[in-house]
């Protein structure tokens, strides 16, 4: 299968196989007018198989979302058909308004104008806790 090269845009590479659609949703790529290719189960020497997302436009990517999902994702910036920058992502200390707290007892369940803030409390185990109620990894997209 052949996917066109992009001239000016972004390639999200090394996405864990199966995660591309979730990242597509979290980054709200469905709201873009440009061409977006979601390529699943691409053969990879390093990963066995992986997903790739190609975006045919130089948009602002929320790197925190990517880091929150998967620290191994690489972000390649393409200009005039050439890769001009490669960014690595890391676990963000804080994620804001990316996921929602699922705890029905949390203040955010009734006061929905509050920012949804999760803080990284255990980087080793990738534990995020709601800033308000301290619920851990208990969130909705």
């Amino acid at each position: 299968m052949t996917i066109d090269q992009i001239d000016n845009g972004i390639v999200l590479d090394h996405i864990k196989a199966g995660n591309a659609m979730a990242i597509y949703r979290y980054l709200k790529l469905d709201e873009l007018d440009c061409t977006v290719a979601v390529i699943k189960n691409v053969k990879s020497v390093k990963m066995g198989k992986k997903d790739i997302i190609k975006i045919d436009s130089l948009i602002d990517i929320n790197l925190d979302v990517l880091g929150f999902f998967d620290e191994n994702i690489t972000v390649n910036i393409i200009r005039d058909g050439k890769k001009v920058d490669k960014k690595h992502v890391s676990l963000p200390e804080k994620i804001i308004n990316i996921v929602k707290c699922k705890n029905p007892r949390c203040i955010t369940s009734t006061e929905q104008e509050l920012d949804q803030v999760f803080r990284l409390t255990d980087p080793e185990k990738r534990v995020y806790r709601c800033m308000y109620c301290d619920s851990s990894n208990n969130f909705l997209p």
Binding site: R105, I107, E111, C130, M131, Y132
Partner: peptide, 10 residues
């Protein structure tokens, strides 16, 4: 005092 968790933090 508030019945919802995290209300004082807000």
């Amino acid at each position: 005092r508030h019945p919802k968790e995290g209300a004082p933090m807000a």
